[in-house]
Simulated assay, not measured.
Amino acid sequence: MPNFYCEYCGTKTSSISSLTASSCSRHPLGSGKGKHKLYEGSEKTKYSCKYCGTSTSSISSLTASSCSRHPDGSGKGKHAPAL
């Protein structure tokens, strides 16, 4: 059975509908101000930030930190997983 992940926080569910129905604590607009967003890449052993290349073993740990090369400016956004 496939797993589906949120691009913003790494939450894992077994269906897209259950993932996108819930609020995301790491949504770019703020906690509780938007829903989870489906990560459209495949499951991997390492996830890399599409802005700076930082690599971690999970989407959750990747998106927990600020990215120095985020398009909004250094420290103004989180790492985002590359597909």
Rank of each mutant, 00 (worst) to 15 (best):
P2F: 05
N3Q: 15
Y5Q: 06
Y5G: 01
C6N: 10
E7Y: 15
C9T: 14
G10S: 07
T11Y: 15
K12R: 15
K12T: 00
S14V: 10
S15P: 00
S15I: 11
I16N: 12
S17R: 12
S17T: 13
S18I: 05
S18W: 14
L19M: 07
A21N: 14
A21W: 11
S22A: 09
S23E: 03
S23P: 11
S23Y: 15
S23V: 07
C24Q: 04
C24D: 02
C24R: 11
S25A: 05
S25K: 13
R26Y: 08
G30W: 09
G30V: 12
S31H: 09
S31T: 13
G34C: 07
K35H: 14
H36T: 03
H36L: 01
H36C: 02
K37D: 05
L38D: 03
Y39P: 05
Y39G: 00
E40G: 08
E40Q: 07
G41Q: 10
S42P: 06
S42E: 14
S42H: 10
E43I: 06
T45A: 15
T45I: 10
Y47W: 05
Y47Q: 01
C49L: 06
C52H: 05
G53T: 02
T54A: 11
T54G: 07
S55W: 06
S57N: 12
S57F: 12
I59K: 04
S60N: 07
A64R: 09
S65C: 03
S66C: 12
C67I: 07
C67H: 03
C67F: 05
C67T: 06
R69G: 12
D72S: 08
S74T: 05
G75D: 07
G75Q: 03
K76Y: 10
K76V: 03
K78C: 12
H79N: 06
A80F: 12
A80G: 06
A82W: 13
